[in-house]
Amino acid sequence: MIEGLAAIYIFMLAGFTGYEIISKVPVILHTPLMSGSNFVHGIVLVGAMVALGIADSTAEQIIGFIAVLLGAGNAVGGYVVTERMLEMFKPSGNKAAAPKGEDA
């Protein structure tokens, strides 16, 4: 378990990390990056799975079910739209060759 001071360290370092990542990003990627960060907080799915997994009353199961439903929507939807947007970014010149080659 992560508690007390250790948790505060994680909160602080994660905060700085997020700040660092975004501070150098070109405007052209703001929308994909917002979408990408939207996908990343889809990790809430994992917490929702635990909440439903340890539910022991019907009420808890219903609420937990909604949590997993919403969390899965966040994760999957966030991934699909981000991937679709980023797929389209390509430099001029070798238009077809470069991005396709990377896929494999």
């Binding site: 994680i10 905060g15 997020g18 700040y19 975004i22 990343v40 917490g47």
Partner: peptide, 20 residues
């Protein structure tokens, strides 16, 4: 929930999103 992945990912997005 004591889940490190959620803490890190959530707070990274929280701070990156605030700056954005």
């Amino acid at each position: 929930l004591g889940n490190a992945a959620m803490i890190i990912a959530g707070i990274v997005v929280g701070s990156a999103g605030s700056l954005l």
